[in-house]
Design a protein around this nucleic acid. Structure first.
Lengths: 217, 217
DNA sequence: ATGATACGCGAACAGGCGTTCTATGTCAAG
DNA sequence: CTTGACATAGAACGCCTGTTCGCGTATCAT
């Protein structure tokens, strides 16, 4: 016997399979044989064991011999949850108005809105936070109204990086392309209808750099 | 005793905690008390039990009484892996050259490169696949060279949707903004230097619609 | 000194748990 | 009808496993 489609499993085997699935969603750990027995109404542990062997032959699960709760469901594209990161969506950045706080560890923990991403998208998760972009001043940087911008908290940037900059004199944050020019920073809105402007580097504070942009359509 | 910072845990307690973490990464299920005992070099099960109680008081883990492998790590932002979807990255779409196959279920299963996303980003996962955009013909649609485009397999689109269109006469696929104009389709590259062109609707086949764009910077 | 508290060790208990063995029933192929 | 593959029950074996108990040791304020 090689492989077997799910729909040609016997009725108790299907019951076992779905019981295991439900059980693992509720408890995070696999059930014991006796829990399967009582959960499915099967009358003996030997029957459960018998059917489990069949399911194992059908490649639908693996077992670790003689280990309690040794069942392993065969879910091929199941992703390790550790590869997923939750990034707090801390606010809206209007690309040119209103302050957005640079979040610290405490506010991060309190944020309820989270953006979930694979770690592979963003690398190291330290200092990551998310903002929703408002306005179209960064349209040439391919950031549109409503886009989710993933930021990494950084205090310095390379020339030409997209960054959130806090302007001390205006008490507001803005998302711009940043160039260092001597003692001043050039902040360039990426929209042909808007002109770059310059601020004294001492009156501006780099809050974070754009590491990823996500747009739902 | 209320809550306790990790750094003021006793040394065996830290060892236990890290052992559990490593064990669960390797085995998916929590260890038994005796496995902790041997894995950490602690001399008795009662000591492990003792320290586990302390860790439980410190809110670092929960336990299900009298259940084998009843440990539950307290990981607040742990995401349910079912909320994560793996989308096959099936190829490159040059926004105007070379055919890209519309993937069927079989090829999806064989693809090795996956893009991982939260389900909340894309909704239903049916018919999703990912392409890497090449070229700058869609620059005004905020899709740049190297962006990851998440597509949903669809045979029809609304006017103005971004879609992958297969051109029968050229035997190639292209990513364009699509408008239906009677019997023909208007395919509009979103780049001011490129002009829209028209194809007979019978010679074009909608392959999928853009549902999400991801750009790493 | 003294008692309180935390920490440590080994052993034992009782039920949990996977496994296996025997007996029985079903049913289609030979 | 016989046979053999498959399915079902019940029970028992033996290790697994969480728990608890008795007995130590060290530290420290009283």
């Amino acid at each position: 016997m090689e492989k077997m489609a799910i729909d040609q499993l016997s009725e108790p085997q299907q019951k076992i399979l779905s019981f295991i699935t439900v059980y693992m969603e509720e408890n995070d750990i696999p059930p014991t044989i006796r829990e399967i027995q009582h959960g499915t109404g099967i009358s003996s542990t030997s029957m459960v064991s018998y059917h489990l062997k069949a399911l194992e032959r059908a490649q639908l699960l693996n077992r670790r011999e003689r280990r309690s709760r040794g069942l392993v469901m065969n879910e091929p594209h199941r992703v390790n949850p550790r590869d997923m990161v939750a990034i707090p969506l801390v606010g809206v950045i209007t690309c040119g108005a209103e302050p957005v706080p640079t979040p610290d560890a405490d506010t991060l923990a309190e944020t309820e809105n989270m953006v979930h991403l694979a770690r592979s998208m963003v690398g190291n998760t330290d200092g990551l936070y998310a903002l929703e972009a408002k306005g179209d001043s960064m349209i040439d940087a391919l950031i549109n109204d409503g886009d989710i911008v993933i930021m990494r908290r950084e205090t310095d940037v390379k020339n030409g990086d997209l960054a959130a900059v806090f302007l001390l004199d205006r008490n507001e944050s803005t998302l711009k392309r940043v160039y260092k020019e001597g003692r001043r920073l050039k902040l360039k809105p990426e929209n042909p209808t808007l002109k770059p402007f310059y601020v004294d580097a001492r009156h501006a504070q780099i809050q974070g750099r754009v590491v990823c942009v996500i747009r739902r359509t």
